[in-house]
Design a binder for these strands. Structure first.
Lengths: 230, 230
DNA sequence: CTTGACAAGTGTACGCCGTACACCTAGTTT
DNA sequence: AAACTAGGTGTACGGCGTACACTTGTCAAG
């Protein structure tokens, strides 16, 4: 009947609830501290109960990726391959920024789920619809690489210790040992003379690189590139 | 004296031996199965002995990165920023290919060691020596991203299940569902009619993208790019 | 109404992991 | 001779993923 026994009657777990709870947990506490046990606890359930809905932790992570990829806005937008691709990649980026753990998980997956394949297929389709040859599309997809998901490995991430909390003599030493890094870090310094390094706008950098690549793609395409080898 | 007590007298552990043993172990068994315990066993020592030489596993991984980065050939080569950068990046790639686990570790490090900073500083220096403005160098380094280490996230890695071992009807279904991926996979098919997909030369793809980026950098530099913002 | 199948959740247990902490043991310094 | 110290040991703890045997609630077939 409607009422269950005296044990707290909760909505009966299912794969979807498990996955979205996992996503929430990862959002809140980081993916490293996401364990089957904690997830179970969050869901008010014993750890082994999860295994009725996901085969193992690998599959849980796969499912979480699917959830994230499902959030990407894939509604057709823009006209012409270039603006379509650009729009799509920036949509993906918006999602990835909401789930900072997701790009690490995405990277680590080796088996692609249907959802992921769908996404890739649709991006490839944009180039093909734009008249790119199969070969050029192939190379261009490789060149995009992880940027098709809206991220790239950040090498100097902005979280690079706010210079404020580093003692000045330390900065002096750093500047002596790594002159070029220091120079670059200082480039954004304002007129107030304070050492406010790395005023680095990630979004700008991302779009800068993306547009550089798209420029290159466009140039190759326009000059009728077909194949450089064989 | 020279001879120790009857316990097997082995060379006295040190940081260097620990790190290179860890690298060997990761090369052989993959970085995922590298544990402090296995490493200790490999060195004929009790797990806790390692902690006299590395603070914890994080620092072990940092040290392993240092070992790998130290293998990169940094002897000056080529003339002009472009060939220097190109050469350097390809050297890094050669090392990363010898240690397939390394790029995942490299990605995951957040704290940069002096060795890593040295490497980055020297790459930045190449652009600066080539006359790039500080600003342009900054953007260009971001655009290079992980490619400065000779890798990029591979999205369709060649290990994508050799088509031979997949039943044909499965391939049919895949082709129907992911038409663009299938088309691309078939592009390399030989004349023998067999479905031999993804004859994908990773090295070619890497250099293709690298050169595309370098082209872009060169173009911006030549047209006297200084700053697009502010 | 019984029965048996089945899906969902439970409880216990195992082997692995990183590492804190107290200890031992040589060799070196004082 | 005494104190110090660097390097290696042994034990133990809490956390992890998950195998496996179990109970329990639901429902269709006899």
């Amino acid at each position: 009947m409607a009422q269950q026994s005296e044990a707290v009657h909760r909505a009966p777990l299912n794969r979807e609830r498990v996955l979205s709870a996992a996503v929430v947990l990862a959002d809140e506490a980081g993916v490293d501290s996401l364990s089957m046990r904690k997830l179970a606890q969050e869901l008010g359930v014993v750890p082994m109960a999860l295994y009725k809905h996901v085969a193992n932790k690998e599959e849980l992570l796969d499912g979480m990726v699917d959830v994230i990829v499902g959030e990407i806005d894939t509604r057709p937008a823009g006209s012409g391959w270039r603006s379509e691709v650009r729009q799509r990649v920036l949509s993906a980026r918006a999602v990835l920024l909401r789930h900072p753990w997701a790009h690490r998980v995405l990277e680590s997956r080796t088996n692609k789920t249907p959802v992921v394949l769908d996404y890739m297929d649709s991006v490839i389709g944009m180039f093909r619809a734009g008249g790119f040859s199969v070969d050029l599309t192939h190379h261009v997809m490789h060149a995009l690489g992880s940027r098709m998901w809206g991220f790239t490995q950040e090498l100097f991430d902005d979280s690079q210790s706010a210079p404020a909390d580093v003692p000045p003599e330390m900065l002096q030493m750093m500047a002596a040992r790594y002159p070029h890094i220091a120079e670059m870090a200082m480039a954004g310094a304002h007129d107030d003379g304070s050492v406010v390094g790395l005023g680095c706008d990630d979004q700008f950098e991302f779009e800068f690189a993306l547009d550089l690549l798209l420029d290159g793609f466009e140039r190759l395409h326009q000059q009728g590139w077909t194949s450089a080898r064989r």
